[in-house]
């Protein structure tokens, strides 16, 4: 593996940072499999942005984990000052405040911490307090920095955790293992990305959702390439990529032993056939991302 470590980082200065988002559109195509294995092969830091169900740590087993709470603001209403005028409830775009005859009621899970209610309140009755909605964990797996966000169960809003996770990323190459789909969670992760790897599978659903993901990364004007996971000889993804002029970074062959290694919580690159495929992908990425363009 040594000869491949640094195949990507080689061209980066010590303080430079390159953030590559791994996304898919369709769920279950292998974002985490690709991101964890690429981390190992390219000596890149692994950042699990799928804060609703982060699972990359299972494969990378980082140690010495440090945890930090993620907190968000919510309004506290001083009932002595409040005149029940209802201006705060009217201004709230997220329906988090309701004025009843007796009091103003807050639905804290609907609050986006925008502070509009405080500005609208003529009686200075609103201040803000903080509550914990999740955590950021960081540890080391060998030389790799592994970081993940965790959204508390029952909390509906993942974006504040994703933002906290992606602020102050370490120097070097960071692989951002995104959530499935093309929702706000993925969009907020892409705000921090310099390039993207789209993981898909050769199926009708894989292709359909890949098209959505392609639209999204094109909106961000990011350089990107596609990886076909679970490749079984069906070339529908390659055909689409050719028509759209999208580079295919490589394929991961569909085999039973991949599932066996995965279900034991190990990385695929422990098998030589997969190590070869991932090294090929790492080389493909060199051609796609901009630090190699000059």
């Amino acid at each position: 593996m040594q000869e491949w470590a640094g195949v990507l980082a080689g061209d980066l200065g010590e303080e430079d940072r390159l953030n590559i988002a791994v996304l898919s559109g369709k769920g279950g195509t292998g974002k985490t499999t690709i991101a964890t294995n690429l981390s190992v092969v390219t000596a890149a830091n692994y950042i699990d942005c799928d804060v609703e169900e982060p699972n990359g740590f299972i494969f990378l087993n980082p140690a010495q984990i440090i945890s930090q709470a993620v907190k968000v603001d919510y309004p506290v209403i001083d009932r002595k000052r409040c005149t029940l005028c209802g201006d705060c409830a009217k201004i709230c775009q997220f329906n988090a405040l309701v004025k009843t005859k007796k009091e103003v009621i807050l639905f804290e899970k609907l609050c986006h911490s925008c502070h509009a209610c405080r500005i609208a309140c003529k009686h200075e009755a609103i201040t803000f307090a903080k509550r914990t909605i999740g955590a950021i964990e960081e540890g080391q797996a060998g030389d790799l920095i592994c970081r993940r966000g965790i959204l508390q169960i029952g909390e509906p809003m993942a974006v504040p955790v994703i933002k906290a996770l992606l602020e102050n990323l370490p120097a070097g190459i960071n692989l951002l293992d995104c959530a499935a789909g093309t929702s706000c969670n993925v969009v907020s992760s892409l705000h921090y990305a310099d390039g993207a790897v789209l993981v898909t599978e050769p199926s009708a659903f894989g292709l359909h959702d890949l098209k959505m993901a392609v639209k999204l990364v094109r909106n961000f004007n990011l350089p990107f390439g596609v990886i076909v996971n679970k490749y079984n000889g069906d070339d529908r993804i390659q055909k689409f990529c050719q028509e759209e002029n999208i580079p295919v970074l490589g394929t991961i062959t569909y085999q039973r032993k991949a599932a066996e290694v995965y279900s034991a919580g190990k990385v695929l690159v422990e098998l030589s056939v997969y190590k070869k495929e991932f090294c090929k992908i790492a080389e493909g990425m060199r051609g796609v991302f901009p630090w190699n363009w000059q």
Binding site: A89, F94, N95, A96, V98, K99, T100, K101, F107, L110, P156
Partner: peptide, 29 residues
């Protein structure tokens, strides 16, 4: 509404001073 539909709806009804609501189902908020 993007979210909090039931809350927004309830606020409108509270503002109308009604004493009873007839509906099929209602969410927790």
């Amino acid at each position: 509404a993007g979210g909090g539909a039931g809350v927004a709806a309830a606020q409108q009804i509270l503002d109308e001073d009604v004493e009873a609501v007839i509906t099929g189902n209602m969410g927790p908020n």
